[in-house]
Every structure is written in C-alpha cells, then in structure tokens.
Write a protein that binds this DNA or RNA. Structure first.
Length: 958
RNA sequence: GCAGGGGUGGCAGAGCUCGGCCAAAUGCGACGGGCUUAGGACCCGUUCCCUUUAGCGGGUGCGAGAGUUCAAAUCUCUCCCCCUGCACCA
C-alpha cells in the first residue's frame, strides 16, 4: 500500500513553502471561491469536508482552466453558541464533556473553556489545521474571525447603509415570549426544544345589543360567519370587560391577560359568565341578533375565551348545542345553514378523503356537514372530546382542500381563498382584529418554567426584506445567477417571497454592537451576509498595519461602492491612498466572479440574506454569481448525531483513511443534491483504486515501447472521450459523473488494457498524465505524487487541464473491443450450453471459430440503420448480392426496425485484422484456441449467422 | 397546514431535461469458482421469473391507477406514501 500520509504531508509542506495558493491579481481573470465559514464552537467531523472539499476542488479546477481562482476562509463566532458552550463547561455538563472527549480534546484544554474567547481561538486553530490536512488550497493570509474589530467595522458600515436605504425599520412583530425572563424564546429556549409556532386568529367583534361593548370571538374560520347561530362562553370561567383602543370587549380573564403582550389592553372590570349569557349580540355580517349560550368546550386561555358558534360546520358547536337541547336548556329556533360544499374530482359530500377502513358510520345528514362528519366516524353528542376533535380535524382538512363557498360575497370561490378575503374584509371594516396565538398542541414552556406567550415587540429593529423594491431587485438578480443544483432554484424563489421582517438586533451574544442601540448586538445571521467580500482585501489592511479605528465610513464607501477617491479617503481616515486604491482594485478583481458553497441548511436563511444584502449594498459588478449547495454526509447508513454516538472527527478520518480518499468519496461520490454515504467499504474501494493507479505509474519504466497496436489506439480513444466527458461534467459541476469517468472507469480501462495485452509505455504514460491532471482537483496530493513520478518539475496544481483531441476518438476500435468482449461471454455461454449435448460429452472444445460477417452485410446494416425502412434498403445494391439473400438478411430486423443502432463504418477486412490483434486476449479469456475467419471464406455451417455487430461463433469439439 | 424535493432491482444510487440500443449504469451485499495453510485483499462468473441439448426466446417490471403513443422508468392526469424547511436561530 502507498504511504498516503507521508505523501500528503510532503505535498502540503511543499505547497506552503512555495506559497502557491497565496494569490494576487494577475493578467488571468480573477474569481473568488468561498464556502460558508465554519462556526467555531465544536471541532469538525468528516461531514464538514464535503462542502469545503467541493469548493476546493472547484477552485483547483478553475485554476487548471486558466482562472486565477482564490479560495479563502474565515471563522464565525458571533451569537450565543460559544457562550452556551462556556456556560455548559462551567456547569460541568456531562454530555458536552463526553462529546468533546470523542474529539480527543485534552481535559486541560476543556478546563479553560469557560472562557468564550478561549473556545473561539481553540476551535479556530483546530479547524484550520484540519483544513490544511485536508489539502484545502486556501490563501490563509486572508483569514479572519467574525468577532474581530476589523470585521465589526465592515458590519457597522453595512448597517448604516441599510438604514440609509430605508431597509432598517423599527416595527411590531409577533414573537414567542417569556414574560418571566422578558426575552424572546426560540426553539433553543424552550423545554423539549419545541419551536413556538405562532398562528394568526381572527377576533370577530359581535356587538352587544344592549350596550356599546363587543363580544370578541376568536376563530380560525372567519368565513363561517355566515352560519353563526349564537355565541358560546364558558359558564365556569371568569370574564372581564377590557378596552383595546376605543372599544370595550368581553374576554375571558386569562385570555385578556395573555393578550396584554399584543395590545394596549386595559381591564376595566370583571363580568360573570352568567351576565354574558343573558345578553344577545349582533352579527357584523348581516345584523341578525343571536343569543349567548354556555359552551362547555370553550377554553378560557385559548384565543379570547369567547367563540362564535357555527353548528353547521363545527362539530364541537353542533355537539354543544345538542347537549344543551338534551339537558332541556331553552334554545331558540336556529337554522343550521350549510355554507360550504366539498367538491373533489366530480365527487361531492363529506368524507372524500376518508378511506373505507376508517369509516365507522354512514352519513345520514349531508345537509349539515358538522353532523355528517360526526356520523361518518360513528360519533355523536355523547362522544368524547377526542372523538369530536377527530371529526373537527377531518372537516377542517377537507373543507380547506376541496370546499367551495355556497353563500356570501365570495360564493363559488374556494374555501381557503374565501377565508382570507373575508378576514381581510372584516379587519378593514373594523369588525375584526387579528390576534396571534401559540398554535403548539401543548403549552410552550420556557426553560425557566414559565409558559410562553405571543408578544408583539415594538421598537425592535428589523431588516425589512419585505420591501417590495428590494425583493424585486433580489429576485431579478437570482434569475441571472447560477444555482447548483438547479432544482433548488424554486426553493430560493419561494424563500425570497416568504422572507419579510427579520430581527436585526438582539440582546445577547458575541458580535458587533448594533449602531442604533449600543446595548444590543447585531443579529448573528445578519452580520455575515457580505463578509466574503472581505477576503479580497483584508490582508492588504493587515500587512499595511491599518488599525480598525481608521476604517471609517469613507473607506468602505469608496472600496465597496466607489464613492469618493483614494485621496479623499486618505484625508478622512488617514489610510494611505495607495492602500485604499489597492483594496478597491482587489475587490473588483477578485469578487467580480464568485462561487459560494454551503450545505443545504443555509438555503432558506443565510443564502437568501446573502443575495438581498449584496444587491442592496454593493455594486452589480460584485453581486453573487453562483451558489453551490451540497447534501449532508451520513455514516454507514445513518445520520451522524451525538445521540447515536457515530460522529467521526475529521482528524480521525484523516488519520485513518487519508485526505485524498475521503475527498474522493465526499466530493464526487454522489451528485450534489443527494446525501452521501460515508462507509468503510466505499472508502476502501477508493484506496485500492488509488493504489492501483500508483502502481501503474510506478511500473511505467518496466513497460515496453513498441509501435502502437489496436489496444493502444483503444486506450487513446478512451482517454480522449474521457477528457471530453469529464470536462463537460466539470463545467456543469456534475462531480459524480466527472469522477466516475476520470477515476473509477479509468481503473477498469487500465485493467482491461493490460488484459488485452496492452504494454505500451508511451500510451500508458500519456493516459496517466491526462488522468493525473483530471483527478488533481479531487485528490491533489496523489496527483502531485504521480506528476512527480512522471518526471514533471512543476506542481500539478499549476498545470493546465488536459485538452481533448477529437481525432483520437476512434469509435471503430471501441466498437471492436466491445465486440471482442461480447465474443468472450457468448463463447462461454455456448460452451456451457452445448457441453450438455450427448455428442459433446467428455469432450473439450479444440477450436473456436469466430466468423466475421461479409462486407455487404455491414453496408446493408448501416444503410438500414440510416433509412429505417427495409424497402428502401432493398432498392440498393451491395457488392452484387442477390435480392433473395439481402431479403433474408434484412427480414429479421423488421420487428425492431426503430431500435436498430448504427455501427461504425468498419470494413470486414479491418475488423478481421483488429480481432486478429486481440486474438491472444480472447483466447486467454475463453481458454481455447481461437481462429478468425471471414464469412465468405468460411466452410462453417454456421457462417451464415454472422451479423455485422455480432460475428458467428462455431466451436469445434475435440 | 404551507412550500420544496422525492418514490427505480436485496441495499445504495444513475437514468428520467431530448420517450425507443433499459431487464435498467455503477458500487455494495449475496451466491458459485479461482488464488491462498486459512482469513482479508485480489481475479472470474451469477444475482426478476420462466424457458432453452449453440450464444435464443418469452413473461413480469421502475409507488398505485388511468391516459397519450407504433413505443413510457422516461410525457399528461388523479391518488397514496416519504423526506426537508417554516424565522430572531447558527
């Protein structure tokens, strides 16, 4: 086996010494390749290599294609995770310590991790070492951390600009909120890590007929207002009169308390349920007067604790009324009005999505959908709430999906559309108010133990991605970008549509202070949207000793948007105009072309913000040009996760398998969009192939160098079609296709070449040179080694991609080689079958006759493949063959006339010659002597069976 | 719920954009054989079913169903199922 570790460190050292990845502008076109900078709160695992490896391979490929491709890397440390680690270490968190142990972090280092800055430094270093050992061609002079002052200066400029552009706004926004801690709660802040799901309800206002107060009825289904028969309140709940704006509302006490976080709400006094029950209310939609009734199911802490009753469509409402009726409660006459019809693919009525097995009853009352659903599931007024809930969900699902309005202003429209329209109408006419609630099935509990609520935060700074002009600009630019894999483009488009307000500041965490509220920091995703641009010039600032404090507005205004001149910047900042100019020139040179790489998880957040911020802040010349995302890496069929304990640290992987095999597996093992499988079998397969290639190169000197034979031409042919295929695949970033051909198939071809008797040193050398060049982006270390073994003086990393020579592609010889291997398997087949014949018992074949079809058959076949019509070919003349023979030859093709495949124009004579050259190979494979004959000269009875694409085989038994 | 992406042989995973060399690449696994003291590695063959005493032929088949077509894994429609994301969080 090759000592890959030795080879890898040898070349990593050589690259570093020669500084070949420390790039400066040149006469070649510049391009900046970036990959999402890693977050420095944990070490890397083998999965991380995928994104970085792809970016690196791409950069290396571009260089070989004549581009000056810069690959740079920074580190992300803003936000709370690092602080979180420090806290957990301070608390001696067992699981974290265990996790860090799997990464072989010394206890002495762990002990120091109560200090956030130590954590950041520690992992910055760990990750950088890992990247170097992975062979990433990064220009390390340009690295930075997102918490350093220089970085902050850029971010501050960014936010000042956003504000000037009007994209930074203060506003209201609903968030999950802990009233105890006075903090927004996200998924990480809740017990059980539940994401608070905020949903909008409609609070429809029904005026009390006897006063100027309103019943605030919360509902998910404002469109059913046409069927309201009454209002429900919970008899045993406490109610209050509360004032929102200039209106008084009746609300459940608990609900009113929760609503304080959303509205200016004052509670003016309490009111009993009994009092409410004596009232009546007026429907805002038609002014009809409706009673207030006791609803057993109304929850005082959900919504408003007051609901409108639509017994025709809401099973709970129906059941509640039925129970009142059964208990003898005096009810007025009510109309159960059907509002919505379910229509689906010609069918009508309830239960269209319910399959037979789930039906427990028959629908007797289709005119009252709520009842119909209860009947469908065999439930009734006496059933449990769970059963009624089930019917409710089915009704809601089907009506949302296939429901059509039968009544009202939006009669004929689909139910979901009507719902939104009616809601908007009610709100704009002042008859309803939007209300937010947490939609989670169970109450969301903050880590501190307090129940979370929805709060409308005021005066919070937001980045307004909902701005119409901005959105349009971003979406328009997306159209011109290259997106890999292309099928994700829709996801980008949708995410751009959805993104609206985004918090710009937060109270806690590491990061840049928010310029307009210095107590807060800039929200940590928003501070990393244009940082890639920094790579292009940051090292210039460092090497010239520019201090962060001098990086004033004027500097970035000039570098980023060309405002002012180097001289005016020098005056304003004290930075030498030469340096200033160099920074701007570098930005334009490197960042004009760019490719940004990341994992799939960043598409709907970071990458969207990345596009938005670029089009807002920078000049079109340096907007994003291309985004490449790749799937995750699984290990032996499973997701790598802490709980499964199957996370392989990157360093362990590098030790065990080596960088090149891991790169080959992760970069080009599967297509970009699929998750890849990191398995020992797969990587061992790669290692043994690398080994084979190594041995091939090493054995070159012992090979012959005679005149070229057919097999050699075959090898050249394969090589050149390979170069073309790989080049095309690389241009499309189809790394899997490219390396299946450049790596895996290469190995099989070399093996086949040698089996076919190929021993030509020149041919193999040419082959391996081109192959080395093609594999260099993915396995750079071995490629360098091969290159050196091939006697080359330069780094392969600085060489040109191999050129494709169409003239060397020889379909005829590839066809003949395929024919030869077909002959081998056919012969084996025939021998196997025919040895069972009595006459052949105990005998062995002594000669295999391969009979090549007559020349006219080739011509006729080719004509047929061309014309696809037998009658046309029958009109033609072929070497004086009579009509009868021609007809006999052509007839069998009639059935599959459309699937006849054209074969190369290859004369019988040269076919025989080529097969003759490969005779040794065929003999070796079939194990018997072989003779090649031409049909016309053959005495074999089977000669007539010879076809142009398939010689006849006749076995003589000894 | 909304949005996006998928459902292919024992498994993983191509192919489907441009319907026809597709019974379907490649890898793994399994089985048989070779090589080895043995194992590993490596090499050869087989791996949907049936049939076949000369390489053939036939059937079924790419989530389900229907359609378009001379021809569908590939196009259209309907349905079922799975995965991912859904915001103050990196």
């Amino acid at each position: 086996m090759v000592d890959s570790k030795k080879i890898e460190s040898k070349w990593q050292k050589a690259w570093a010494e020669a500084k070949i990845f420390e790039l400066e502008p040149s006469d070649k076109p510049g391009v900046l390749v970036t990959a999402a900078f890693p977050y420095v709160n944990t070490p890397q695992h083998i999965g991380h290599l995928r994104t970085y490896g792809i970016a690196d391979a791409y950069a290396r490929y571009l260089r070989m294609r004549g581009k000056n491709a810069l690959f740079a890397m920074g580190f992300h440390a803003t936000g709370t995770p690092i602080i979180g680690i420090a806290k957990r270490i301070a608390n001696k968190d067992r699981s974290l310590i265990e996790e860090l142990r799997t990464f072989h972090i010394p206890e002495s280092d762990m002990a120091k991790m109560t200090e956030p800055s130590f954590i950041a430094d520690y992992f910055t270093n760990e990750i950088e070492v890992g990247m170097k050992r992975s062979g990433l061609s990064v220009d390390w002079r340009r690295k930075f951390v997102s918490t350093e002052p220089l970085y902050s200066k850029m971010v501050e400029w960014q936010f000042e600009r956003l504000k000037e552009l009007g994209y930074l706004v203060q506003g209201r926004h609903p968030v999950g909120w802990c009233p105890n801690e006075n903090n927004a709660v996200g998924q990480h802040d809740t017990k059980g890590d539940v994401q608070p799901e905020i949903e909008q309800l409609t609070m429809v206002l029904f005026k009390d007929t006897a006063s100027d107060s309103y019943f605030g009825c919360s509902t998910y289904r404002p469109e059913t207002i046409y069927g309201v028969t009454n209002i429900f309140v919970n008899e045993s709940a406490d109610y209050v009169v509360a004032k929102i704006g200039d209106r008084r509302l009746y609300l459940a006490k608990q609900s009113a308390e929760l609503m304080k976080y959303q509205f200016e709400l004052t509670i003016e006094g309490s009111i009993t349920a009994k009092e409410l029950l004596s009232k009546s209310a007026k429907s805002p939609i038609d002014g009809s007067e409706i009673p207030v009734l006791p609803g057993y199911f109304v929850k005082p802490d959900v919504g408003t604790g007051v609901v409108m009753s639509v017994p025709s469509h809401a099973p709970f409402d129906y059941v509640a009324l039925k129970r009142l009726e059964n208990s003898g409660y005096p009810l007025p006459k009510m109309e159960f009005r059907k509002l919505i019809e379910i229509e689906k693919a010609g069918g009508k009525g309830v239960g269209l999505s319910v399959d037979e097995s789930a039906r427990k009853g028959s629908v007797a009352h289709p005119e009252v959908p709520a009842l119909a659903y209860l009947e469908l599931f065999g439930t009734n007024a006496e059933s449990t709430d769970d059963a009624i809930e089930f019917a409710t969900k089915a009704a809601y699902r089907e009506e949302s999906r296939w429901g059509v309005m039968l009544v009202g202003k939006y009669k004929g429209k689909g139910e979901p559309e009507a719902r939104d329209l009616i809601k908007a109408d009610l709100i704009s006419s002042g008859d309803a108010i939007a209300l937010y609630v947490l939609a989670n099935p169970a109450p969301v509990i903050c880590r501190c133990g307090t129940r979370a609520v929805v709060r409308i935060v005021d005066n919070q700074w937001f980045i307004n991605y909902g701005d119409k002009g901005w959105k349009e600009k971003a979406k328009a630019h997306l159209k011109s970008m290259k997106i890999y894999p292309e099928k994700l483009r829709k996801t980008y488009e949708n995410a751009m549509d959805w993104i609206e307000m985004r918090a710009a500041e937060r109270a806690q965490g590491l990061g840049t202070r928010f310029p307009f509220n210095r107590d807060h920091i800039i929200e940590p995703l928003s501070d990393s949207t244009i940082y890639m641009s920094l790579y292009s010039f940051i090292h210039i600032l460092r090497s010239n000793g520019v201090q962060p404090d001098s990086l004033k507005r004027e500097f970035f205004d000039y570098v980023y948007i060309g405002k002012g001149t180097p001289d005016t910047v020098e005056k304003a900042t004290g930075i030498s105009s030469m340096v200033v100019k160099r920074c701007r020139d570098s930005l334009l040179y490197w960042y004009g072309e760019n490719s940004n790489h990341s994992g799939p998880d960043l598409v709907t957040n970071h990458l969207i913000m990345y596009i938005f911020n670029h089009v807002a802040l920078l000049e079109p010349d340096v907007w994003p040009k291309q985004i490449v995302t790749n799937g995750f890496v699984n290990y032996e069929g499973q997701k790598m996760s802490k709980s499964l304990g199957n996370i392989i640290p990157l360093m362990d992987g590098l030790d065990r398998f080596g960088a090149d095999p891991m790169r080959m597996l992760e970069i080009s093992g599967v297509d970009l969009d699929t998750e890849t499988e990191f398995s020992n079998d797969a990587i061992n397969g790669i290692i043994s192939r690398i080994d084979f290639l190594y041995k091939t190169v090493a054995s070159l000197d012992s090979m012959g160098g005679n005149a070229l034979k057919s097999v050699d031409y075959w090898l050249y042919s394969k090589l050149n079609s390979k170069i073309e295929m790989v080049s095309q695949a690389m241009e499309a970033l189809s790394l899997k296709t490219a390396y299946k051909e450049a790596f895996y198939n290469t190995v099989s071809e070399l093996k086949q070449y040698s089996e076919m008797g190929g021993t030509n040193q020149i041919a193999v050398r040419d082959f391996m040179e081109a192959v080395s060049l093609m594999v260099a982006p993915v396995m750079p270390h071995m490629a360098e080694e091969f290159w050196e073994m091939l006697g080359k003086q330069r780094f392969i990393a600085k060489e040109q991609w191999p050129a494709f020579d169409r003239d060397m592609v020889n379909p005829a010889i590839e066809f003949m080689v395929d024919m030869a291997s077909g002959l081998v398997s056919d012969t084996a087949n025939i021998v196997e079958l025919s040895s069972k014949i009595d006459a052949n018992r105990g005998r062995k074949p002594k000669l295999v006759k391969v009979i090549v079809a007559n020349d006219w058959k080739h011509k006729a076949y080719r004509a047929l493949a061309d014309k696809r019509k037998i009658s046309d070919v029958m009109q033609m003349k072929f070497d004086g063959v009579d009509q009868q023979s021609l007809s006999k030859f052509l007839a069998p093709f009639a059935k599959r006339i459309n699937s006849i495949v054209q074969i190369p124009d290859i004369g019988t004579e040269s076919a025989v010659n080529m097969l003759g050259e490969m005779r040794g190979y065929i003999e070796k494979r079939v194990g018997f002597p072989v003779a090649i004959e031409i049909e016309s000269a053959s005495k074999s009875a089977r000669a007539g069976r010879a076809m142009p694409d398939k010689p006849s085989i006749d076995i003589e038994w000894g």
